[in-house]
Simulated assay, not measured.
Amino acid sequence: MKDQVIITNNPRVKKEFQDLKIDFVNNLSDVYSKSRNLVHQNWKLVSHPLAGSVKPAQNPYRSIILAPSNKLDFYSLNTIENAIQKLNQFSKNHKKREYSQKIKDDYQVIDLTLINSALKN
């Protein structure tokens, strides 16, 4: 996990992994754009930006793990660009929802579980 970073907007991930490098951002869109920017700076995806069966605009929380690379990783670039395209497509086709705190908590747990799984691999 050395040198890796988790880009997240999930407060549970930030709290759970205080010993890891976390870049906490404001919203879902920022998670994807910050991850894409790092890929352009020779970082590669460790976790998939569309992990899980929840559509990207449905879960308001997302965490993505990246690691430094010595060159532009075209697989990561293609993957993050496709994820951003899907996010934009779902966001355009579905109106923004307001979730209760209970539902937000559930979505945070889903994202935390996915990141835990990715870190174990």
Rank of each mutant, 00 (worst) to 15 (best):
K92S: 08
N26S: 09
I65A: 04
S76Y: 06
A51Y: 02
V5Q: 15
P56R: 12
N78F: 14
L20G: 05
F74S: 06
T79S: 14
A118K: 07
K95V: 00
N10I: 08
W43R: 04
T79F: 09
K120R: 15
P56Y: 08
K86F: 11
K34L: 03
D30Y: 12
L20R: 14
N116C: 11
P68F: 12
I115L: 09
A118F: 03
N93R: 05
N42V: 03
L50W: 11
M1R: 02
N37M: 05
L87H: 15
Q41Y: 07
N82P: 03
N59G: 04
Q101A: 07
R62G: 04
D111V: 08
N116L: 06
K2T: 06
H48E: 08
S33F: 12
S29V: 02
K92W: 06
V39R: 09
G52W: 03
S35G: 13
T8S: 11
S76A: 11
L119K: 11
L50K: 14
N78V: 12
N116S: 13
V54S: 05
R36T: 00
K34R: 11
H40G: 14
T113V: 07
S47R: 10
V46K: 03
N82G: 15
Q85C: 07
P56H: 08
D111F: 07
S100N: 10
P56A: 01
S53D: 09
R62I: 11
N93E: 09
R62Q: 13
S63L: 07
I64S: 10
N121C: 08
K15S: 15
Q58A: 02
I22P: 02
L38W: 13
T8W: 08
I6S: 02
K120Y: 13
N59A: 05
E16P: 11
N59V: 00
N37T: 00
E16F: 06
D3G: 02
A57D: 01
I65C: 04
Q18D: 03
K21W: 01
I6V: 08
H48Q: 12
R62C: 13
P68G: 02
H94T: 07
G52E: 02
N26P: 03
S63T: 10
N116F: 10
M1K: 03
S47P: 10
Q18L: 07
Q58K: 12
Q85D: 15
N70I: 07
Q18R: 15
S63K: 12
H40T: 09
A67C: 13
I64W: 07
M1V: 08
Q41N: 14
L112C: 01
L50F: 10
Q58V: 06
K102Y: 11
V46R: 06
P11H: 11
